[in-house]
Amino acid sequence: MNIEHYLTERHQGTHRQIMRLLRQGRVTLNGAVIVAGHTQVDSTDQVQVDGAAVTGRQPQYLLVNKPMGVTIDLNPTVAHSVGSLLNVLDQQRQLGAVADLPKEVMGVVVLSDDHRFLDDVRQIAWPSTLTTRLTGTAVPAELANAAWDQVQTTVNQRQKYVTVTVRTQDVARALPALVALPNATGSVTRTSLGPLQLPGDLPIGTYRGMRAAEIDAVVAPLDADVTES
């Protein structure tokens, strides 16, 4: 079979991920780097990804709904950290994070033990979408701020609050500006990181594996020149 099918059968990632592994020179066949998805492999060949045999490489891609007051620290012994939210199996993995979310902000965080994937996401530098609520139905007269490049408001007349949604490249800078808005509740949530949306059915303080479409979407800009096979 060809190397793309070989890696797919061994759960090394989505089709796009596997083509990216090849393009990035991360796959070796009998010690030689291979980049073509149609390269043939048989049962006697030694295939490695990032220097590890594929039988021992099962990368994890996790989507966390981080609570407020929880740090991005992945050490499970640190109280009020993302690491303390993980189950025992995931605590043993060498996970990293796209760690730009202050403890005061809750919402979507990406974890993985595929550190090249994390580097790719950082390289793309997706903007974050942040939301906060203001008590009452009065929309502040001036919402323009250098900390964000887009802002929208939605008024809930029935429950008497205003939702402010901004897009920013600098969460740490946007946070104090949002908290300082008139009648702000102090609660700020990252509802998306680029195309990656915080699932409505993922409770605060929980996590799940990223779906193939989510993994592909978050690194899609780097796949523009990848030839499909």
Rank of each mutant, 00 (worst) to 15 (best):
E4S: 05
Y6I: 07
H11M: 07
Q12R: 09
R16T: 10
R20S: 08
L21F: 04
L21R: 04
G31S: 10
G37P: 14
G37R: 11
H38T: 13
H38C: 05
M68W: 07
V70K: 02
D73A: 12
D73T: 10
P76S: 13
T77S: 08
H80T: 08
V82C: 05
L89H: 03
D90A: 04
Q92T: 13
R93I: 11
A97F: 12
A99C: 08
L101V: 14
K103A: 14
K103Q: 07
K103R: 09
M106G: 12
G107D: 10
V108Y: 06
V110S: 02
V110H: 03
L111D: 01
F117G: 00
D120K: 02
S128Q: 07
T132F: 07
T135K: 05
T137N: 10
E142N: 06
N145M: 09
N145H: 14
D149Y: 14
Q150D: 06
T154Q: 12
Q157N: 03
K160H: 12
V162T: 04
V162L: 10
T163D: 03
T163I: 15
T165N: 02
R173W: 04
R173N: 04
A174E: 03
P176I: 15
V179M: 09
V179Q: 09
G186A: 06
S187G: 03
L196H: 01
P199D: 08
T206K: 06
R211D: 00
I215G: 00
V219H: 01
A224N: 05
A224C: 05
A224H: 09
D225L: 15
